[in-house]
Design a protein around this nucleic acid. Structure first.
Lengths: 188, 188
DNA sequence: CGCGCAAAAGCAAATAATTTGCCTTAGTGA
DNA sequence: TCACTAAGGCAAATTATTTGCTTTTGCGCG
């Protein structure tokens, strides 16, 4: 009697999931998160509350699921210049998105759920994106930081600040990138 | 009709707060967090549920409050060798505590609450502790990283890993510290 | 000291959310 | 086509939350 992780596309289960996700996104856009309840989500999605309870367990799990699916990158990072420049542009946008009200909420939703799967998924997405820059740099023979260095010294500080402190400022990210680039790699 | 942030010690309000906090700590120690409810906490603390609802709002706020108060450092970090060695020892213990089941839960509780105050408090505690090392190093004329460097390149990566990934390994923290120390500062 | 005030707690009724058992529906694969 | 099963609907039972009103407690003041 378990629910499939990935419902077959086109099936009823997939339709319900889509309707519920959509309903949650609508509500997040229009009202305060503290006022959102499962019965309300259910009504807007035209399903019964018990469907949601059985499938997701509670509001936190549902919100985490929705947040993680919104965080999935839609495309490869843009290629506009050198790998370093691409990384800088991407990181800046990443920081902005995460620091925005919506992004911040999504991060919290993901971390609040008792199930760790969504947090890992989210970190995995970021690593995938970073891996693209690393591959490009390698291809072009450009010196570049490792994945671990990028995660530890660019992503982590940005996320920490967003979660605990204040949003990272505009050139803060640029400085982090500069610091992590290998010696002798100067910005053009 | 607002509740005081810091109830006068010895008053009724302070007793209730202590009883409720204790009740929460007991329950966290003995049962799964998903099974904890406000009525249960109230019963164990000999208080009516409405008292808790009025004072804290909901379970998440209460858990965040309890977690933040547990995270308050009790003493200045130990002084056993050079500032760098002290920092290493402290950071390692910090990482262990945060990565433990209890520590991880506390972090999540703090981040799940809609009120950001506890998250800021928690980050503030860490910065206070780090400031002690910096002051000691300055006093002894030892080269030392800034507070920002320590937060960005030691604390942030540790916390990020705990939240999104896996617990940081045993010598991972040591490497982070080594990396952030000023050039020419070699380990004795 | 004892009085009055206001903050905070208790109580209980009203409301809302969650859980659960049982039934129905809709896809899937033989 | 048919039977099987995962998933959804419905409604009753349970549990949590909110709220209006009352009572208690501790503080400041005369």
């Amino acid at each position: 009697m378990g629910y499939r992780e990935n419902p077959r596309p086109g099936g009823r289960s997939a339709r319900v999931q889509a309707a519920v996700h959509q309903s949650v996104r609508d509500m997040l856009a229009t009202m305060d998160r503290a006022d959102i309840t499962i019965p309300m989500i259910a009504q807007r999605a035209n399903v019964t509350p018990s469907t949601i309870y059985r499938r997701w367990g509670d509001l936190q799990e549902l919100l985490a699921d929705v947040a993680a699916s919104r965080l999935r990158p839609e495309a490869e990072p843009a290629k506009v210049g050198s790998p370093r420049e691409d990384l800088e542009a991407w990181a800046e946008q990443y920081a902005d998105e995460m620091a925005s009200g919506v992004g911040r909420q999504m991060l919290r939703d993901i971390l609040s759920a008792s199930d760790v799967a969504n947090a890992e998924k989210c970190s995995g997405y970021t690593q995938q994106q970073l891996a693209v820059f690393i591959a490009r740099a390698k291809e072009q023979g450009e010196a570049f930081p490792t994945l671990t260095e990028l995660m530890d010294h660019v992503i982590s500080p940005v996320i920490y600040r967003i979660l605990f402190d204040q949003a990272p400022g505009p050139d803060y990210v640029r400085k982090l990138v500069a610091k992590v680039m290998p010696e002798g790699t100067l910005k053009s």
